[in-house]
Design a protein around this nucleic acid. Structure first.
Lengths: 205, 205, 205, 205
DNA sequence: GATGAATGAGGATTCATTCAT
DNA sequence: AATGAATGAATCCTCATTCAT
């Protein structure tokens, strides 16, 4: 496609350089923490020169924001794909719960960035709770509401509160797993957690 | 009470200086974030010279650790005092939930330190999840267990998981409140949250 | 002598406090070096409060200057006392050489202060070469001159140069001993050094 | 000589930056003393940014050590070159004496660093008396020994002691010159000092 | 596009000195 | 006279970012 003569970083080389930098950042942030992470360390982990990072990103902070945005977007997209064909509220919650635990449980470094590094400051925390995460909470809330409307879930519980509670439970599970020295697979808890949540939501007979 | 003339920095002057420094640290950490907080800013907030901080603490990090330890200790002690005379598991959980939301809901700066600044690094996160917090989780777990044994709470739910879930829900409520731009009193949610939790635990009829 | 009622630091207590501070300073300077020595360390070594040092001295620098001045004065006085009854130039040089090596060889901490700490800066070096030390060099020079006049010492050697040479030799012997890990008595070299010097000065037959 | 266009900081630019920093350090150490010397002053003297110094050296202390090591190495190498073709012990000593006085006498700032700043602490003093300086003393000692074996120098004098004495005399001459306010050329004393030493060593007739 | 040498702002901490008691 | 808590000036070094090549 490129008929240029000289170097001509093919599309993919460029893409992979950007990805390598992001991956390097995830690993270095997870290992050292955002504030202690050195840009030069990230460059080394990515196999590029320090200055190269600034060709792709605005700086250290932009790396963190980008990691958050891209992973959250991917996360939401794949979740929505999985939910597309499922309308049953209970099943939808089970899928969401498993998806949450699987996504972060499959990449400890990414989990550390999500559970620890992204909460470095009020600024990031706000970022965290806006937009994408708000959308995620909304998705949970609507599912709860629809379950209540269908008479599947107990009414009387404020759907927004329930959505936050589910998020809080999942968040705590991930954090707890991430800090644990035992190496259990996080997704193994999906059924238990789903049982807990659905039991809590279930209509008493 | 002291009739002596000279003795100088009476017990309380010294104590209050220490407290002023800790309070200054809470406020500056909440405002600027731990890493961006300048020791000189804390000193100014406390009304002491920069160097004075080092007469009372080992450094910036020690301030954060001390804030955590002392508040958590106080928190646990006052909770245990409130629970001393209460044996009914439902009532105990209601008290714990309200206590949690009240403690952090009455001091936004402290809440920021707890929800954000203490989670700066894996190191602090670990600190956070050890000892005092572990004791707190344990208290919740034992209450759940005793409710299950008494037939008040649904069996089949793993008590440790339930304890984590309760903690996760509370944690999320505090974070959500802390980040919210609305100024609602956090403790007002105590009943709702307690209902949510107790409903989830209740034995179906 | 003091009929005062209360504390009444008797003459000697005061004197000894001053001496204790100076001795503490010699030891701490020798151990840590002048710049790394902390005033509070000296106070501790002397068994007084930090502030007390400032009742007796103008500060850290004054301590070093005072140590130098007082020891050098004592040194010169005792040397002059020993030389008072001796007129023979050879004997006078032998006495001076032994006296030099004995004085510093009997107190390694003091030797360190003299050979190392006093040479911290051009300012101290100048102090070192002025006044008392100049007087010492002069004493050596006059002895050499008188030996030459008497025909005991070879003429043709510039007396001032010889005096500096003798001082240089002695200085090097002290430094070498001070740095040596072996624990030989420095004064044992007095005769050898004196032989060396006197041989060099002796008239060829 | 280099026809390449881009390669950037040519060997010499880099080398000269390093040299400029070292020279700046010599001057600032001589002017202010090691402890009072500010790294930023050295950077200014060298015409580089503060941080640049840390690209070439480990820190302030490393600068002092490097100055010492490199100058001493150069000194010894040029001395050995001068002595290579000279076997006569008297001539060898004359050359060594002149070389010593010339080297330090041609650079007052360097002399200050050698005579004053390097003796800041026992640690540096030890450095000073190890390795290179030990090699220098050895060279003097062997020359004395060989003169004694040849019957040129008086026996009965301990060669090691004589070597130290020569070093002490030279050291004192340099210090004395360095502190003097008169601006006499130090090397002018070479013959006088050599006469003094050789006279002292000469066999009586 | 890529490099990496150079920059220089920024801050935690130490410690000599003061002074109220 | 003695204390020692308090002060606050002073500086080394790090590291995110730039830009000439």
């Amino acid at each position: 496609m490129a008929h240029a003569s000289t170097p001509a970083p093919p599309e993919t080389a460029r893409a992979s350089k950007r990805e390598r930098i992001l991956r390097g950042a995830v690993e270095v942030f997870a290992r050292s923490g955002y504030f202690n992470a050195k840009v030069s360390e990230i460059a080394k982990a990515a196999g590029v020169a320090d200055g190269t990072i600034y060709l792709y990103f605005d700086g250290k902070e932009d790396l963190l924001v980008t990691i958050f945005r891209e992973h959250t977007r991917n996360y939401l997209q794949s979740l929505q794909r999985e939910l597309a064909a499922v309308s049953q509220p209970e099943a939808r919650l089970r899928i969401a719960i498993r998806h949450h635990l699987q996504s972060l449980g499959s990449d400890r470094a990414l989990a550390v960035v999500y559970q620890v590094e992204l909460r470095h400051s009020l600024k990031f925390m706000s970022l965290f709770s806006q937009e994408e995460v708000a959308e995620y909470l909304d998705l949970l809330r609507r599912t709860v509401e629809s379950g209540q409307k269908d008479g599947l879930f107990r009414r009387g519980l404020h759907p927004q509160l329930v959505a936050k509670a589910i998020f809080g439970i999942l968040d705590e599970m991930v954090t707890s797993w991430m800090l644990s020295e035992k190496e259990y697979p996080l997704a193994d808890q999906a059924d238990q957690v789903a049982d807990l949540v659905l039991t809590g939501l279930s209509v008493s007979r």
